[in-house]
Nucleic acid binder design. Sequence first.
RNA 1: GCCCCCAUCGUCUAGCGGCCUAGGACACCGCCCUUUCACGGCGAAGGCACCGGUUCAAAUCCGGUUGGGGGUACCA
Length: 493
Amino acid sequence: MGQVRVRFAPSPTGYLHVGGARTALFNYLFAQQNKGKFVLRIEDTDLARSTEQSVDGILEGMTFLGLEWDEGPTQGGEHGPYFQSQRLDLYQQHADQLVASGRAYHCFCTPEELDEMRKIATSKKQDPKYDGRCRHLTEEKRQAHLQAGRKGILRFKTHSDGATVVNDLIRGKVTFENKQLDDFVIWKSDGMPTYNFAVVVDDALMQISHIIRGEDHLSNTPKQIQIYKALGFQVPEFAHIPMILGPDKSRLSKRHGATSVTQFRDEGYLRQAMVNYLALLGWSYDDAQTLFTYDDLVEKFSLSKVSKNPAVFDIKKLQWMNGVYIREMDLDHLYQIVLPLWQNAGFLAADPKESEVNRAKLILGELQSRGKLLTEFEESAYYFYKDQLEYNEKVVRKVLYKEQAIEILTLLLSQMLKVDDFTQTDLEPIFTEAQQKFECKLGDIIQPIRVAVTGTNVSPGIYEVLMLIGRAKSCQRIKDAVEMAKAHFNEVK
RNA sequence: GCCCCCAUCGUCUAGCGGCCUAGGACACCGCCCUUUCACGGCGAAGGCACCGGUUCAAAUCCGGUUGGGGGUACCA
């Protein structure tokens, strides 16, 4: 076997979705593992639907996932160009070749005629295939059509006898009867080649050795194989990986929620989690390992372990995995990632002082095991930074609007103002003494303070929270809470 | 309609004829830890789609049924 060359060939008609990303990942891993090349090619022959914006989105998604391509749009390569729209002359040459060799012919049927043809066929319970009526057009008629200004299209003359076998690396031999195929279009009237034609010319010319793509392409493979052969190209290896489905088992799409990888990034997912999860969608290593580093994947990935059945995308597992990677990450690294988010939220200055950085890391350290998404750290950190608390009304009513809560807060407030150092060592005794005095559980002391200081009943340990918020602000908030509770009781009366 | 692919807990999967009274992970439930929430620890529940074969023996091989997915475009 020569050098391994694989490719990812998205059409820029939308963002990079998880299905495409997973396909790109498998290609990337396979290339890395075999010291081969990973090619990125943009299949933009659909003039109506392709957009530049989509190209950017796809590149952005790939970059986020760390799927670096060896040849492609940005840096080129010796088999370029890498946009199909810039390879028209190549397709033209090969189409001419097929016409010259008698394997392709002009067809002047109108869409209406074709429609009619299919309807009749269907009503007669026959396959709605093209009947090949233009296959034997005389040269005069052909010229006449051309003279009349009809552009026409090109159809491939398929072999209808025998069978075409796709030797799939994942599924084994898949046999298609050639009589199932009709003379399909290879050149459209808008002057562009069709997918099934362009993909073959490109993969052959780009010397792709293994075509790893979604299972939705399996049924089209026999057509492509016939073109490979008609053009005298060597047929590459194929590996059709299973589809990714939504929770309702239908093909994953926008209506299932987030499906573009950049959107996942924006929602706070880490590259490692995304890659790890995607890798496990349709592939597994053994019965024990679920966490894989990039290097691990490159080493352990194999097409033979790719499963044949479609996989349902499970956001819950992705979230769990994201949490795992957040927890595993060392604090400095996590800080670097969260920094821009916090700056954006106004928590930290563009160029924070060292003391601020240290405090931010301490806060983040407390939050680290409590978040599954990076974006959660914005909400869970706000009371360390913002002066104005957003009280959770339900919680306030339940915890603060109690006669005893006012007493507890008042007592603790006076103690906290007196204490030498605002640290756990000095703070803890205050709480335990209060607990004894009120003859209650420690939690009954802590919860009112927590709500007073954070506005909610969920936070890191209370001593850490107090220390990180600081004496002045903590005491002020407790004072505010007491006022608020008192006001509530006055109102009730 | 026709063609192709697929079928193990709710989900992702291990399993490639006896090691399976089917293993792991997520989710769910319970318990522990505890100062709330997480984290962590322990435990429970939960599956070989169905029907026939082949075999001493089948989740594993074969056939059928059912179900799901894909293709059948001048989309890719």
